[in-house]
């Protein structure tokens, strides 16, 4: 199968802080890959580099067979990107915002109204035309961000923490949606919620200190609990037990 995303020995530093340290992995077409790891291990940096939102310092990132450089941005229309924290134009209403997203993502102008109607109904986004995004709740904002990520029917879904702030109903809806479309889409997702990520992904990359330390495949005979235990073992290995402060009674 074609490799859609390739990270070859990628390094990223923020000043003296190393975010990615020789990160290497690849994602094939129609694969659903979950990236898991502790806070600060470099998951968001990986997504941001993949989507050309930040520059990397060394190594090579190839997406759709083209090296990711500041000038190579054409591939981004093929991605459905949800970054963390999600990006909005706070002063717009959801429908205004989604309309411009459609225009920027080259959706057929005749289709725009239908698509906005479809995604807002799908995610049950209320007050589409009346309330500015700035005044929506965190969960509602997340729904708008998800709607914006899929509205142009992208080939690859790149989601950074898509489940946070969502209510149970929307989480079920999102996992159901991903499971429905995953045969025709490539999925790259990060999350701290192991149950949900195991539900939607077929392969798991475990990250620690800016690099991949394990690669787990969901295959026959491997149960969800086994995957979960293995992931937990890996990401908690070498961690000392956190002691409760004496004053906290």
């Amino acid at each position: 199968m074609d490799q859609i995303i390739q990270f070859n020995n990628v390094g990223k530093k923020y000043g003296n802080v190393v975010a990615l340290n020789g990160m290497s992995f690849s994602v094939s077409q129609y694969e659903a890959v979950g990236l898991v790891g502790n806070n600060g291990c470099g998951k968001t940096s990986t997504i941001n580099i993949m989507c050309n939102l930040i520059k990397y310092n060394n190594g090579e990132v190839i997406v759709f067979n083209k090296k990711v450089t500041p000038l190579n941005v054409s591939y981004k229309n093929k991605l459905g990107i949800l970054i963390s924290p999600p990006v909005f134009v706070d002063e717009f209403t959801p429908s205004q915002y989604l309309r411009f997203v459609c225009k920027f993502q080259h959706v057929d102008p005749k289709e725009i109204s239908k698509r906005i109607g479809d995604v807002t109904t799908l995610f049950n986004i209320v007050s589409v035309d009346k309330i500015k995004i700035a005044r929506l709740s965190a969960g509602e904002k997340m729904k708008v961000a998800l709607a914006a990520a899929i509205i142009h029917n992208p080939e690859v879904l790149v989601f950074d923490e898509p489940f946070i702030h969502l209510d149970i109903h929307t989480i079920d809806l999102l996992t159901g949606l991903i499971n429905t479309i995953r045969n025709n889409k490539t999925l790259f997702i990060t999350s701290h919620n192991l149950d949900l990520i195991i539900n939607v992904c077929s392969r798991f990359l475990i990250m620690e200190k800016g690099r991949i330390i394990d690669n787990i495949l969901k295959e026959e005979g491997v149960t969800v609990d086994m995957i979960k235990t293995r992931i937990k073992e890996k990401i908690t290995a070498g961690r000392s037990e956190n002691r409760k402060p004496d004053w906290l009674s």
């Binding site: 939102l53 981004k76 134009v89 997203v101 920027f104 993502q105």
Partner: peptide, 13 residues
Amino acid sequence: YLEKNRFYLLFNI
């Protein structure tokens, strides 16, 4: 703020 929150980068503006 749209520059800072990477809106322009996200949509290749």
